[in-house]
Design a protein around this nucleic acid. Structure first.
Lengths: 182, 182
DNA sequence: TATCAGTTTCGGTAATTACAGAAATAAATG
DNA sequence: CATTTATTTCTGTAATTACCGAAACTGATA
């Protein structure tokens, strides 16, 4: 009937669910994603409930979540009024979409809060200097990483992949970088 | 007595604990890390218990965990037999250490399992072709990212930072990459 | 308007995870 | 060897999170 009948597909789905929960993603959400990723046709919510033994309401919520990540898309099949769902199949696009959303949800708020904290502490001598410095440095560090990410993200996919294939050879373009290890 | 008296330090510690739990890290573990990061002197376990209102046993376990991540180091202070602990203060080193450990714990096992799955499915015609292909592609994708990471990791810290500062300008060194967005 | 599909909300429950506190063990110190 | 300190293990509990099932609500369709 569907890929859930294949034992290896089941294993994959369980592993994917496990991995999700190690990274703060609801197990059902990642399992549903794995199921859709392995499916060669759009599935409707009812099928997903049955395949993974989940309650209808949770599947609905999880599908919303996956659409929020932009890695699952709603489609329709002819002669069927029900919504159907398909997963993003390009793994690079999928990866970038997940990173973008987690940045939005978990990194951006932390940068905001650290920025507020730093600002609030500025110039107040009753607060130990090293506390101010270290919170400020953390704020700066995360901001720097984020800025780098935004720049890299703006590159074409093909350029990015080419850069990745260069691997450590990118170092050649940095002026004073003779050694390779540290 | 210590940084825990500073309201802003408390806020930082709570935020850091929150963030940890969003990324699959025990809240106590990340709070202890935040406390040590803000401290200007080594702390012993008892102090940490008091500062964060945690049980001695949990602090002990959490400190082991942080040492496992290589972002907290054991030290001693003169005239005191007790173990004391300090956090890695170089944020770049800290970041790389965390990434290395999470790769080891969560990425490497997944690559292994996907590899086994792929191998086990090879050539078996009763398994739908698209299932074999997609699991194989996921395995390949994660392996590629990991290989790239290992290469980049081997570069000197200064080279890495220089590359980061280049931002999207690194694209200049890729032959056919005229456009900037996609 | 009756029906169907979907979403959202809510109360209760199951499962998981985090934690405290005690006890046993180990290891180092003087 | 007694003492101090640290670690580990265990049991029970608290807290959190995940989930089901029902019901209410929305919106589209025929």
């Amino acid at each position: 009937m569907s890929v859930i009948q294949v034992p290896e597909a089941q294993e994959y789905i369980l592993h994917w669910g496990e991995m999700g929960s190690h990274w703060g993603v609801n197990r059902s959400v990642s399992q549903i994603h794995a199921l859709l990723y392995l499916s060669d046709r759009p599935l409707h919510a009812e099928e997903i409930c049955e395949a993974l033994s989940l309650a209808r309401s949770n599947v609905s919520t999880a599908l919303k979540e996956l659409q929020g990540y932009n890695i699952v898309r709603l489609t329709h099949v002819v002669g069927d009024r029900r919504d159907h769902f398909v997963a993003e199949l390009d793994l690079w696009d999928m990866f970038m979409a997940i990173v973008a959303e987690r940045k939005r949800r978990e990194i951006d708020p932390i940068i905001t809060r650290l920025g507020e904290l730093s600002e609030r502490m500025a110039g107040r001598d009753e607060i130990p200097e090293h506390v101010r410095h270290r919170i400020g440095r953390m704020h700066e560090f995360i901001s720097t990483l984020t800025t780098w990410y935004l720049q890299v993200r703006s590159l074409k996919k093909s350029t990015l992949i080419a850069l990745m294939k260069l691997g450590s050879k990118v170092a050649r373009f940095v002026p004073g970088s003779s050694g390779s290890t540290n």
